[in-house]
């Protein structure tokens, strides 16, 4: 048994070393970095960076926008991908085609997709032409607070396929006889969904929710590509702040912001995991 453990450790060693070198060590040394003053002398200043950061209006604005965008995008993505997956389950002809097509945006390079979005939402683009045809005013989608709409739509378009695939495989794993029994017992569509479908796909649903939220937190490059380092106040994200601090050589505030945000994300997912375990326990 001891030699079996030893061989397991040996197999794990390269991966553990990489983890140590590229994650653990930088993570720990980054904490130390966030406690220095950021000049080339690197004097220790304790928690001053954290105090300065949490009093900075732009950091707070970026954090607020990041949270708002994630609260809009993650649930929207979850619901949309679930509904589409449920719909695709009942589409027998061309089902494979739609499944494959839905994954394409996830594989396409972001910069290529952004060019398409820039054309669509341009002031003279097709979206505004449709609005004008419907008797409405043109909207400056790319230069105002309305930029949130194309950003959210782009997020959905890019991530929908992957979440769809996860939901589809989870739905396909539910035994068909359960639904037959439910129908025989007189359960309608909603009762079947909340009584059978959702409880049985809880682990996958939770996975989709977590991934959606993590991806929503990472919304930045689309905003930067369209609106630059200083976009409209409503789409100025935490990563905009961190990016600008980096270009000003203020690496200390970058790491301070990253760790602060990391703590918040950790707290959020700790709550989510707790809720998920409670839900799973309840279902059992």
């Amino acid at each position: 048994m001891f030699s079996k453990k030893k061989s397991v450790l040996l197999f794990l060693l390269p991966g553990l070393c990489m983890l140590m070198v590229f994650y653990i060590v930088p993570f720990v040394s980054g904490i130390g970095y966030s406690l220095t003053d950021g000049s080339y002398k690197n004097a220790f200043v304790g928690l001053q960076n954290y105090r300065d950061l949490w009093q900075n209006q732009m950091f707070l604005l970026g954090l607020k926008n990041t949270m708002e965008l994630s609260l809009i995008c993650a649930p929207l993505l979850w619901v949309t991908s679930f509904v589409m997956a449920a719909g695709l389950m009942s589409v027998k002809p061309f089902g494979e085609f739609f499944r494959g097509t839905a994954l394409m945006p996830y594989l396409a390079p972001s910069s290529a997709m952004l060019l398409v979005w820039l054309v669509l939402f341009d002031f003279g683009g097709p979206i505004n032409r449709v609005l004008v045809a419907l008797g409405m005013e043109r909207v400056m989608w790319l230069e105002s607070a309305a930029l949130r709409v194309p950003i959210v739509l782009m997020f959905l378009w890019k991530n929908l396929g992957f979440c769809l695939i996860i939901f589809l495989s989870a739905l396909q794993a539910i035994p068909e006889p359960l639904y037959e029994y439910a129908r025989l017992e007189g359960a309608g569509f909603l009762r079947q969904t909340f009584g059978i479908t959702l409880p049985l796909i809880t682990p996958s649903a939770f996975l989709v929710f977590v991934m959606a939220w993590i991806n929503a937190f990472k919304i930045f490059k689309e905003v930067y590509f369209i609106a630059g380092a200083y976009p409209d106040y409503s789409v100025y994200t935490l990563q905009n702040y961190m990016n600008n601090m980096y270009s000003k050589l203020n690496y200390q505030l970058v790491t301070t912001a990253a760790y602060s945000f990391g703590l918040i994300v950790f707290a959020i997912f700790a709550v989510l995991f707790f809720l998920q375990r409670r839900a799973a326990h309840g279902l059992n």
């Binding site: 950021g38 000049s39 080339y40 002398k41 270009s247 000003k248 050589l249 203020n250």
Partner: peptide
């Protein structure tokens, strides 16, 4: 200006 502000 970043270098001057940060003392680099």
């Amino acid at each position: 200006s970043a270098l001057m502000n940060r003392g680099f």
